[in-house]
């Protein structure tokens, strides 16, 4: 079974995974990012228990150089 989700504005296809497993599949360190799920902050403690659903919108951000 596959799902269509939107990640950082791009359409992506994935299998039903938790947010934590999805981040790992993208080789993203969960400690270094913040995640919004459908425009709401997803607290880090909920990454493992939150399953991705069809149509979910994810924003995954991190810190970069800036002034």
């Amino acid at each position: 079974m596959s799902l269509e989700i939107i990640v950082n504005g791009e359409s992506r296809t994935t299998t039903p995974l938790s947010v934590l497993d999805y981040l790992r599949s993208l080789e993203i360190d969960p400690a270094r990012v913040a995640v919004e799920l459908n425009m709401d902050i997803l607290p880090k403690g909920e990454y493992a228990s939150t399953m991705l659903k069809q149509g979910d919108q994810l924003e995954i951000v991190h810190f970069v150089g800036g002034g």
Binding site: V7, G9, E10, L26, E27, I28, I60, F63, V64, G65
Partner: peptide
């Protein structure tokens, strides 16, 4: 100071 930006998910 740091900026907050989208992670580039295509190029890690």
């Amino acid at each position: 100071t740091v900026a907050v930006r989208r992670v580039n998910i295509s190029d890690r």
